[in-house]
Design a binder for these strands. Structure first.
Lengths: 139, 139
DNA sequence: CTGTGTGCAAACACTTTGCAGGTGT
DNA sequence: ACACCTGCAAAGTGTTTGCACACAG
């Protein structure tokens, strides 16, 4: 296990809500939506507070957005070294959404192969969402 | 130019709204959101009707969803042979969103390279969104 | 003529904003 | 003590549903 991030690592005040939200993400290895968080914390925090917490975590580089197939947004911890500093913040890893259980996991090991873009196109970021059946549901 | 689809090809009644929405998509080569459509048709149709039209087109296989980076949904024409019939409906082509002009284009020529998934994972569909600068804005 | 599409109103879901009061450092 | 976080209320935005009427085939 790698040492987990703490709020202080990101220059964030330690508050109950933030601590719990962060812990919630660290407990699972898949992406969570605002609603997921709220559920897992049994609505003990105001919906708005969770929104603001997520937004704060995003801008501080603790979380990154994960696209959902139906237009929703989920969030996942930034592992590795995509900290603050410059905002390159590359997340060229693959997300896998299981169509059965609905969980979206970051396939940390798989990276997006470089793709030959047509002339004139410049890539800044890419995001690959694969949908299918995960190893748990496929068994 | 390939012969464009007509509503009848998809067993859809020909109505003014559907005709105009379809024509709107055929006029451009990038993905449009519900709002885009409404604008381009100068709100001559009810917002609800456009929603329903899009949903109908989706289920009939005329359109497919295009992921947007901020959780929005856009739609683009299905070119090629991803018609109704079986619902394999593979859309493994790449979408490119320009961070300057905001347009999302389907890079029809570029396909997603096959990716080695971890054991137990089965792919059904994949969706690659690349963000950057398009050939027009990069000039 | 019959079934489906359309418009309007309203409900619904999700996210953001403003402000007063509480809390971390 | 001060700045920042939180909760509540309300507004904003995007999407869906119910129903009566209109229209395509």
């Amino acid at each position: 296990m790698n040492s987990k991030y703490s709020l202080k690592d990101f220059e964030l005040r330690s508050t109950p809500c933030r601590t719990d939200v962060l812990a919630t993400f660290q407990k699972v290895d898949y992406a969570l939506s605002q609603g997921d968080i709220e559920q897992r914390l049994s609505d003990q925090y105001d919906r708005v507070t969770v929104y603001r917490t997520l937004k704060t975590f995003l801008t501080q580089g603790l979380l990154h957005k994960v696209l959902d197939d139906n237009g929703g947004v989920k969030y996942a911890l930034c592992k590795e070294l995509c900290h603050q500093g410059d905002h390159t913040h590359q997340h060229d890893h693959v997300h896998f959404k299981c169509n059965l259980c609905g969980q979206t996991t970051c396939l940390e090991t798989v990276h997006i192969p470089s793709i030959q873009l047509p002339a004139g196109f410049t890539k800044q970021e890419s995001n690959l969402l694969i949908q299918g059946v995960c190893s748990v549901c496929g068994a």
